[in-house]
Write a protein that binds this DNA or RNA. Structure first.
Lengths: 98, 98
DNA sequence: CGTGTAAGGAATTCTGACACG
DNA sequence: CGTGTAAGGAATTCTGACACG
């Protein structure tokens, strides 16, 4: 982890390939971006995704199938981020203690 | 290794991005393919590269700068493959021996 | 709300060729 | 041999909108 991570987070994949990889339509992928569930980079207006984005989209697809709305998914994401930031603070505090 | 490898070897990157990543021109990248140094997949005629291909291209770029010809690079690659196949046979023979 | 589709335009990629050397 | 470039065409992607619900 952390070195090969470059691959996972590098935004290099265009939407057509992401569509093939996830099974989602390009319309769906763009809509999830509109709903702030996914954040591709842009290269001259053209969206570029990472493998991490692809994974994220597969999670979204699963939740949507279960009937979870984009708003709910968005809320869950926000919570998870909150958790991770807290975790980060905890680590900063106790790393050299225990 | 082996699980996250999926990212490294998945052919999902188009030539424009590969060009940005490697600093090579599209012309050069296509030429190295013509010389059998690199083997992208095709999606409706459009070349798709993996991160492994990108690394390979950076190696090629370095060798070219040193004045190594594409033919020589090709020969070196062939030798390396030969080595690895031999290594594979060795492993198959002695894995459960030592 | 979530997704499909037709529409017109902009950006990307492809090949074969000519050029230089 | 290795790489640049102009040329014309094909495939991709983009946005805003209408549709259904």
């Amino acid at each position: 982890m952390a070195y090969d991570d470059s691959y996972k987070f590098k935004k290099v994949i265009s939407i057509g390939i992401v569509s093939e990889l996830t099974g989602l339509s390009q319309r769906q992928i763009r809509y999830y971006e509109e709903r702030k569930l996914i954040f591709p980079d842009r290269s001259k207006g053209i969206r570029k995704y990472s493998f991490a984005d692809v994974e994220q989209l597969m999670d979204i697809a699963n939740k949507r199938e279960e009937g979870v709305t984009t708003r709910e998914i968005r809320n869950e994401m926000t919570k998870e981020i909150r958790q991770k930031m807290l975790q980060g603070q905890m680590n900063a505090h106790f790393r050299f203690r225990a």
